[in-house]
Nucleic acid binder design. Structure first.
Lengths: 196, 196
DNA sequence: CCCCACCCTTGACACCGTCAACTTCTGCGA
DNA sequence: TCGCAGAAGTTGACGGTGTCAAGGGTGGGG
């Protein structure tokens, strides 16, 4: 109905497929005929298979950055937990994008300057927050370690939830929000402001 | 030289390939002819492509469990950090196995009882440690959250290091050991015994 | 009217996973 | 010793996939 270009149609179909089935089975041809065009039509919009993944990742990082920024604005009391929650929520609600964004073999971030810029932007949100939290004169070493810790926690929780093993072992997660908050509490990452 | 069976040859070749190039480009036929046999020979040892991945994952979980247990025995003073380090070290030193173990779409853990059992065994090492750490009468909720936090941290750090983005953003990691310890310190996960 | 740029189609090629049938080897009971 | 069953490996074929090459049709500017 909407005057979506073939490019947008293909992209949306690919994201949907990846969210359900993972990126690996994605078939260029299948997506094309699903969009009602010949198997070669998408090649006019993407250089090759990798081009589709790069486009998805670029779109993903854009959504990702705004989601994190919004979470910081919405919950200034405990920004660390807010960021953590935004990260996991994005991963679970945009699996199609997330699954591609962190697969360098698929999207070859270094090959696309635009994609590289988008990815850097997302990461800067995290580092800026850590710098803010530890104060301007904190040693760089601590900032890097803290950023790595937060990123690892958020990324690990996201991937373990998406791929399933965490819920399989630890039992069904009734409330995503409660789990994230409990994890932030059990690790020492929750921001001190809110500590009781 | 060694009297390795075709099965072992194929498995080793596949693990090597995956460590370098990721699991997705792995070609059944290529591995076969690299082993000097016809493209159909491996089918006598693995039901299909997924069978190879299941075998790799099973082997991986076995190595993984013993690595974690050994780390606990070697460093009883700070078992949490020891476990974290063992996790990350295993991931980086056995990328071929690690990349497959946490890809349910590849190895379909639920379809292989043996694999399922191995995976459960690995996870039990973690949960037993947390139960030990928090004491026998800690609420189940806390145990679950703590285990999820530790697992997420270790898994996130591992995947971010393997896939590259962490080092790309945070600078080259001179000492893996130092990074892991700094991260454990910055989060609150390091065991209290060693806290100064 | 012609021409060209753009979007798309058709056709071909090599490679892949897998099914099926064939050959070769090996061990073992009669 | 013979015979044979089963495992191990080979060859051939089929449909599906990514990608290269060439062709078609269409609309707008000279």
């Amino acid at each position: 109905m909407a005057p979506t270009s073939l490019r947008d149609t293909v992209l949306a179909a690919a994201v949907d497929y990846i969210a359900d089935n993972g990126p690996d089975g994605l078939s260029f041809r299948q997506v094309a005929i699903a969009a009602g065009v010949s198997h070669q039509a998408p090649y006019h919009h993407f250089s090759d298979r990798r081009g589709i993944f790069q486009a998805i990742a670029t779109e993903g990082y854009e959504l990702f950055t705004t989601a994190m920024l919004e979470s910081l604005a919405a919950e200034p009391d405990d920004p660390t937990t807010a960021l953590l929650e935004a990260y996991v929520n994005f991963a679970l609600d945009h699996r199609g994008h997330f699954r591609v964004m962190f697969r360098p073999d698929l999207c070859a971030i270094a090959d696309s300057p635009e994609l590289q810029r988008m990815a850097d932007g997302s990461f800067d949100v995290l580092v800026d927050h850590v710098r803010d939290l530890l104060g301007p004169k904190a040693p760089l070493k601590d900032i890097r370690a803290r950023a790595a810790a937060m990123w690892s926690m958020a990324h690990g929780l996201s991937t373990l939830l998406i791929d399933g093993p965490l819920e399989a072992k630890i039992g069904p997660v009734s409330s995503r929000r409660a789990l994230i908050r409990a994890v932030a509490e059990q690790s020492g990452l929750a921001s001190p402001k809110k500590r009781r």
